[in-house]
Structures are given as structure tokens and as C-alpha cells.
Design a protein around this nucleic acid. Structure first.
Lengths: 198, 198
DNA sequence: CGTCTATTTGAATGTACTCAAAAGCGGTGG
DNA sequence: CCACCGCTTTTGAGTACATTCAAATAGACG
């Protein structure tokens, strides 16, 4: 089953009985999204949080100059949404969009509340996940305030070696907070250094 | 009582019985720290998370060039720690240090586990807090990748008007990810613009 | 194949940093 | 009370990092 990926994720943090697992699975819904399709639109309330089974998703926003900036990528095994919009049920400030054709499990706000009530352990699961996500963003702030674009790119490659092969470099630049042209120049420089060292 | 500040924070997210409240208060410990004193040292395991009752605290790290970078400020009513070190009970990558003479309530990892077990609602409290902290850091990433230093400084002033009066500008620069000299130049420029507009 | 978008490259510009020096400020001791 | 010390802040000059704009090239897709 595809949902195995979700059960694996759960097993890392909590033990669920078969009954609780069945309840959880009854509360999520599989959804197929085509490349370019939106899961959340800026300004709308994000009613669901999404667990990626296949493909890749991005969360991004558009600044005052009309420029797009990528807040987060998600591939198989990751949850993605505009978290603030979802947990507060307030209008989203971000867009969530499929980069490739993808399959996700969506879990609605209402169903999550049911779940929390019937299976309090799920509070722990999402608390721990949120803590990990928090640490990841904290790490990113740290990198942004202390490293050059080149070092951030190298750190990105280190952290997401698999993602880079699947998405346009343009999106990587947008994630790193630099222009696509400059990323191109960084890559050229790195290649040349490789060459001269070998 | 000073602990009122903690109870207020709790009341925002969950309702606790008097008994549960008493249990919580029995598990925290008041601690006075002098300006410059450390709550967590890089490399050591953060055994406690801290709720600030008075004063101000900073979380920072030192990069490979020996330069300090501020990850987070905390004033009255905020929790602060090296969250990753605390929840994973692994060596801290950050230092946590008092900026002013301060008073905090410390809650140890062991006591927090007791608390979670006896008062499952506390899972919710910390899940929600972590979500809010997550959103704050996400916001900061967004600002770092899309705004100039001047705009980030203005956003900082907007968000923490009270902090700026209490801490050296040097620390603000470190938080923003710019040099102290450059912040000085930004402020000069802003003053001149103010003058010419009025 | 042709069209559209992504990537590369180069030149000119702007943003932010380093280094060095001067000015300001707060505490401390004589 | 003031003189001095140490630290923060300001200022200026020169430099490095990153952007914009424009044009050329390469890839992807129908």
C-alpha cells in the first residue's frame, strides 16, 4: 500500500494500535495533483495538511516586486502546507503547488481535531514533527545570517542531494534567496575549482 | 506571584485544574542569572528549558570565523533554550546567555516527561507554542531571502520595539545578519530620510 | 521542427563587508 | 569629581559579494 509511507513515519515517533491506525487512515484522503496544480492558494484558508506519497511540492510566496521565493520543498514522506494558515484556519500567505505530478494524502483540520480527541498520542506525533521542522528553519536562519550564497548552496546539496536532480535550478536559487543567474555563476565557479584540483 | 506570567501563558492555550497547575509549579525552579551568565553552553546538553520572568536572554552561536550570530532573543513571557539540544538531549550547537540580570523558571527534561505523562494537555501547550515558534522562524527565513538589510531592520523594529531599547545595537546587527558598522550606516540613512521628509 | 522556458555569460551597478580610525559612553578607582 | 579604561558606535575608504539587464545558448515539450 502507498499509505505504508505514512505508517512508517508514524512508527518513528509513536506506537499506534491497529484500531487507531485504521481510524487515522479513514480520516485521510488520497489526492492526485498534476504538475503546476495548487494545494493552497495565497489568501484562501488551507483546510488540509498534506503528506506527500509521490512527487514533489513547493511552498512559495510572491513579494511586492512580483518575485517568487521558495519557503519549503517537500518530497515523499514529508508533510507540507501553509502551517500557520492551517493551524489558525486563517488566510494563507503562501502558495503550495506541485512541482511534478504528485500524490498526497490530505488530512483536514476537522479530521485532525477528531483524531487528536480520539488518539491523544497524535498530539505527540505532530508536536515532535513540528519541533523538527522548527529546528530545520532555525538552521536555515543560521545559514542565511552567517554564510555566503556559495556555502548555502553547498549545504543545500548536502541536505537535499535527491531533490536537486528533480527540480529546475531556478527553484533552488529561489530557495537559497539568490538570483538564478548568480546560482549559475556559483556552479560554474565550483566546476572550475573541481577541475583545477583534480 | 512571579509565576503568574507562566500561568497567563498557559491559559492562552489550555485550561488546567488547580491540581495540575500545582504539579507544574512543583516541577519548575526559579533561577536568577546575572548579566553575561550562561544558561546553556555550546557542546553541553541543555537539561532545562527556560521561561523568562524578568530580563532578557539571547541564543547565539559562533561561526568558523569566530563571529557571533544571534539566533533568538527572549524577554518576559518567552520560553528559550537550544530546542534541539533540549528535546533530543544532544550536545547544544548554541549558547544561551543572559543579556541583562534576569529571572527564569527552569523546567528539566525529566520533569517535562513526568508532566506530559500526568497532564497530557501539556503536549498541546508545547505543540502550539512550537508551531508559533516555527511560524516565527519561517517568517524570518522569508524576510532573509526576500528583503534588504534595511527592510529587515524596519521589520525588526516593528516586531520588537521594546527590545531595541534594552540591548546594544551590536546585538541587533548580529540578529539581522549584518555587521554592526552597516547597521550604524542604515540608521544614519534612515535619520536623514526622516529629516528630509518632514 | 518551432516555440517557450530555463540556463549561461558578460558588463555595469548596487548592496553589504572589512579594516582602520575617531568619537561617544559608562563605569571604576584615585 | 574627574581622569582613565574598555567597549560600543560612528565614519570613511576600499573591496567583495550579489543583482540587474541584455543577449546568447541550451533544453523541454507539443
Amino acid at each position: 500500500m502507498k499509505t505504508d509511507l505514512l505508517l512508517e513515519s508514524l512508527k518513528k515517533y509513536i506506537d499506534l494500535s491497529e484500531k487507531d491506525t485504521d481510524l487515522l487512515l479513514s480520516l485521510v484522503r488520497e489526492r492526485r495533483v498534476k504538475k503546476g496544480q495548487f494545494l493552497v492558494h495565497e489568501g484562501a484558508v488551507s483546510r488540509c495538511t498534506n503528506f506527500v506519497l509521490e512527487g514533489s511540492i513547493r511552498t512559495y510566496f510572491v513579494d511586492l516586486n512580483g518575485q517568487e521565493h521558495i519557503v519549503q520543498f517537500a518530497i515523499e514522506g514529508w508533510w507540507i502546507s501553509d502551517l500557520n494558515s492551517f493551524v489558525m484556519q486563517s488566510p494563507a500567505t503562501f502558495n503550495v503547488q506541485a512541482i511534478e505530478d504528485s500524490v498526497v494524502l490530505e488530512l483536514s483540520f476537522e479530521n485532525l481535531e477528531v483524531l487528536y480527541e480520539k488518539v491523544p498520542k497524535m498530539e505527540r506525533y505532530f508536536r515532535v514533527l513540528t519541533q523538527r521542522a522548527f529546528v530545520a528553519f532555525q538552521q536555515r536562519v543560521v545559514q542565511n545570517i552567517s554564510m555566503t550564497a556559495e556555502d548555502r548552496y553547498l549545504a543545500f546539496q548536502e541536505k537535499y542531494p535527491k531533490i536537486e536532480l528533480r527540480i529546475p535550478q531556478k527553484l533552488v536559487a529561489s530557495y537559497l534567496g539568490i538570483s538564478a543567474e548568480f546560482l549559475s555563476k556559483i556552479k560554474k565557479r565550483l566546476k572550475e575549482e573541481m577541475g583545477s584540483k583534480k
